[in-house]
Measured scan of single mutants.
Amino acid sequence: SLTLTVRGEEAVRRWYKWAQAHNLEVEVETHGDEYVLHIK
């Protein structure tokens, strides 16, 4: 499992696509303009 902090929706989309390509689940938490992604 992997936890990432990114800024901006574009980065979130990029990681989301990456995770889907690897059959992984993604949980997204929003903290202001930062997003915490939990990839499992």
Rank of each mutant, 00 (worst) to 15 (best):
E25V: 14
E34N: 10
Q20V: 12
K40M: 10
H22N: 12
R7D: 06
S1H: 14
I39R: 00
Q20D: 08
V12T: 03
E29A: 07
H22M: 10
V28E: 03
R13M: 12
W18D: 00
A19F: 07
E29G: 04
E10H: 08
E27K: 11
L2E: 04
A19T: 03
T5Q: 08
T5A: 08
T30V: 15
H31E: 06
A21F: 11
Y35D: 01
W18N: 01
L4P: 02
R7G: 05
A11V: 07
S1R: 10
A21E: 14
T5H: 14
V12W: 06
L2S: 04
K40Q: 09
A11K: 05
E27Y: 13
T3V: 11
L37M: 07
K17F: 10
V36I: 14
V26D: 00
A19P: 00
T5M: 10
K17D: 12
V28L: 10
W18H: 02
V26F: 14
L4S: 02
L2D: 04
H38A: 03
R7N: 09
W18R: 01
V6A: 03
E34V: 15
A21T: 09
E25H: 14
H22E: 04
A19W: 02
E34M: 15
G8E: 07
V6W: 01
V6H: 02
E34R: 10
T5D: 02
D33L: 07
V36Y: 07
V12M: 15
L24C: 05
R13I: 12
E10T: 08
R14I: 12
Y35P: 03
A11N: 11
T30Y: 11
V28T: 06
T30C: 04
R13H: 11
I39V: 05
A21R: 09
Q20G: 05
N23T: 04
A19G: 03
G32M: 05
E10S: 08
L2V: 09
A21H: 10
L24Q: 03
D33K: 06
I39D: 00
Q20S: 10
E34F: 15
G8P: 02
E9G: 05
V12L: 15
G8T: 14
I39C: 02
H22S: 04
A11E: 14
N23L: 07
E25F: 12
N23F: 09
Y35G: 01
D33Q: 08
L37F: 04
R13L: 12
I39S: 00
I39G: 00
L24A: 06
V26C: 03
V26A: 03
H38E: 03
T30P: 13
V12Y: 13
H38M: 06
H38T: 14
E10A: 12
E10N: 07
Y16E: 15
S1Q: 13
